Computed example of a mutant assay.
Amino acid sequence: MTTITTVQGDITQQAVHAIVNAANNAMRGGGGVDGAIHRAGGRAILEDCIQRFPDGLATGDAGWTTAGAMAAKWVIHTVGPNYRAGQRDRRLLESCYRRSLEVADELGARTIAFPLISAGIYGWPKDDAIACAVEVLGAFDGSVEEARLVAFDEGTYADIAARINLG
């Protein structure tokens, strides 16, 4: 059974086996969490993305690369649905969490850190993004021991902690 935890901080600084990147379909870096991960990990992440994902990645899917200069061993990239652009099928968001956990299992990762996928620039409503993450992470039956939700700000941290405690 996977334990869900939450921390407030910088996802790039998490000492876990794998960090999840909220990527875009092109898999070439971007803004927000994606940009922060590429900056922290260095050029090795982009080079691995180009090699492993020459045609990008579909919304709801996930794949891995090196974590470059970060403490984590891997970055698991997942492409969340863009709510602002009309991609509002919650199953796509659920798939991001599930596929990321499946990739972590394949890699042998026991600890994984997630951002709130699609809740930033893609505009997914924060309360539902938190509920979705907690539901999918809580239902996962695999070898991942800890799934950590990393909140950048205090308010989001408090919202995630409250949802985990409702559980």
Rank of each mutant, 00 (worst) to 15 (best):
T2C: 14
T3Y: 14
T3R: 15
T5H: 10
Q8W: 04
Q8S: 08
G9N: 06
D10T: 07
Q14S: 05
V16K: 03
H17C: 10
A18Y: 02
I19M: 08
N24P: 13
N25E: 15
A26S: 15
R28V: 15
G32K: 06
A36E: 09
R39E: 13
G41Y: 00
G42H: 04
E47M: 12
Q51R: 15
R52G: 06
R52S: 13
P54C: 06
G56H: 04
L57H: 00
T59A: 04
D61P: 02
T65E: 09
G68I: 09
A69D: 14
M70Q: 10
M70D: 08
W74R: 13
V75P: 07
V75N: 06
I76D: 04
H77K: 06
T78F: 02
R84I: 13
A85K: 14
Q87T: 10
R91E: 13
E94N: 11
C96M: 10
C96I: 10
Y97E: 11
Y97I: 12
R99W: 07
V103H: 03
A104P: 05
D105L: 01
E106T: 13
E106P: 01
G108F: 07
T111Y: 03
P115V: 03
P115E: 04
L116K: 02
A119S: 13
G120M: 11
I121R: 09
Y122H: 12
W124C: 11
P125Y: 12
K126A: 12
K126T: 15
D128H: 12
A131M: 04
C132D: 00
A133Y: 01
A133E: 00
A133W: 00
V136C: 02
V136D: 00
V136M: 07
A139Q: 15
F140T: 03
G142P: 05
S143Y: 01
A147T: 05
L149H: 00
A151P: 03
G155C: 03
Y157P: 00
D159P: 01
N165E: 15
N165T: 11
